[in-house]
């Protein structure tokens, strides 16, 4: 079966009492893609991932992953997904190695493969000597790397990564990107949220900007510099950051400064 899209979000709505966190998000993402979602704080990036992970319920809309519609009663689809969430989901009283054992068993990785995969992951992310240390003693960057390792241990088809590179050292960051690129080449889809706009522009194939719960811009990253900034002069945008600031900043608020500085 040839799938149109790996991730299909249609009219996704999330309300918290009277607040509209998501206002009809529609996104379609193909396989072999690294998709970046950027937006200001509180724009709704993490809400989308949390809904897909099943941590919170959607108010309305449809989610299809790998061609299957998902709902709160269905959990089997998670076998093919991997998550790195904004709030760490680690069990801090376990050691790094124990946590990876736990995650691999929860994802039903074959018992014979578990040891090898864990050792490889710890080695790649330079955590081998910390494998038997409690997670609560890890630095933020180490925790992020461990969460990433746990998310890919079962070789998922779709990865949802909420700020995956935050607090991670440049060497490990490069390794994470290389792994993600390799997964993409093998047909996986990677969904990333980030505040690092230059990194998203450089690393992702497609990008969307979310603001106040709405998608305000979406294109392939290679097309960013073709987007017209000024209809009169035909001047184009020079970076994702320019578009981001233009589309997410209230013009009046932009002029506000601190009176005492």
């Amino acid at each position: 079966m040839i799938l149109d899209y790996m991730i299909e979000l249609t009219g996704l709505v999330k309300k918290y009492n009277k607040i509209h966190a998501l206002q009809g998000i529609t996104l379609n993402i193909n396989s072999h893609k690294i998709f970046g979602l950027v937006g200001p704080n509180g724009a709704g990036k993490s809400t989308i991932i949390n809904i897909i992970a099943g941590l919170i319920n959607k108010t309305a809309g449809q989610i299809k992953l790998i061609g299957l519609e998902i709902n709160s009663n269905n959990y089997v689809y998670k076998q093919r997904l991997g998550f790195v969430l904004e709030k760490y989901i680690l069990i801090e009283k376990l050691t790094g190695k124990e946590y990876l054992f736990f995650a691999s068993r929860m994802y039903n990785v074959e018992e014979t493969n578990i040891n090898n995969r864990i050792n490889e992951l710890l080695e790649v992310f330079e955590l081998s000597d910390k494998g038997n240390t409690l997670i609560e003693d890890y630095s933020l960057g180490m925790k992020k790397k461990l969460a990433f390792a746990a998310a890919i241990i079962h070789n998922p088809k779709i990865l949802f990564l909420d700020e995956p590179f935050e607090n991670v050292d440049p060497i490990s960051r490069k390794k994470m990107k290389d792994i993600l690129k390799r997964m993409k080449e093998k047909g996986a889809t990677v969904f990333i949220t980030s505040h690092a706009l230059a990194e998203v522009e450089d690393f992702c194939d497609e990008v969307a900007i979310i603001n106040k719960g709405k998608i305000v811009y979406q294109s392939e990253t290679k097309d960013i510099r073709n987007k017209i900034k000024n209809e009169v002069t035909k001047e184009t945008y020079q970076s994702l950051e320019e578009i981001f600031i233009d589309l997410t900043t209230d013009k009046d608020e932009n002029d506000k400064t601190l009176s005492w500085i």
């Binding site: 089997v76 076998q79 989901i89």
Partner: peptide, 15 residues
């Protein structure tokens, strides 16, 4: 371990 966030963690797994 009396970790209040642990139960939510189960939700990301196919279980």
């Amino acid at each position: 371990f009396n970790e209040t966030r642990v139960p939510r963690m189960y939700l990301i797994y196919p279980i």
